[in-house]
Simulated assay, not measured.
Amino acid sequence: MADIPGLAELRYDTPHFDVVRMGEFVLCAISGARIALEDLKYWSAEFQEAYSGPEEATRAFLQHRGADFR
Rank of each mutant, 00 (worst) to 15 (best):
A8E: 00
D68E: 12
P15V: 03
M1A: 12
W43S: 09
K41M: 13
L37Y: 05
S52P: 07
G23T: 07
Y42C: 07
L27K: 11
A67C: 15
G66R: 00
P54M: 09
I30N: 09
E55M: 06
R34I: 11
P54F: 09
K41S: 13
A8D: 03
W43R: 08
Y12Q: 07
Q63T: 07
R70F: 02
Q63S: 08
S31M: 03
R59Y: 12
F47K: 02
E38Q: 14
G6K: 06
D68F: 07
F25R: 05
A45W: 07
S31L: 10
R21F: 00
F25K: 04
I30S: 08
F17I: 02
L7V: 07
M1W: 01
A67I: 04
L7R: 03
T58K: 15
L40C: 09
Y42P: 00
M22W: 01
M1E: 02
H16C: 09
S44Y: 14
I4S: 11
M1F: 11
L37F: 05
S31D: 02
L37H: 03
A33S: 15
E38L: 13
P15T: 08
G32P: 12
L27P: 10
D3P: 03
A50R: 01
F69P: 05
V26P: 05
A2D: 08
A45E: 15
T58W: 15
H16N: 14
D68Y: 05
C28T: 05
A2V: 08
Y12C: 02
H64E: 10
F61K: 10
E24P: 01
M22Y: 01
R21V: 01
F17C: 04
E38M: 14
K41R: 15
E24N: 00
C28Q: 01
L10W: 08
E24D: 15
R21N: 06
I35L: 06
G6L: 08
R34P: 10
A57K: 13
F47E: 04
P54E: 13
P15L: 05
A2M: 09
D39M: 09
A33G: 15
G23R: 06
I35N: 08
P15H: 13
E24Q: 05
C28E: 00
L40E: 14
E46Q: 02
E56D: 11
G6S: 12
D3Y: 04
A57H: 11
H64Y: 14
R21Q: 00
A60E: 08
G66K: 00
L62D: 14
G32E: 11
T14A: 14
Q48M: 04
V20Y: 04
R21C: 02
V19I: 14
H16P: 03
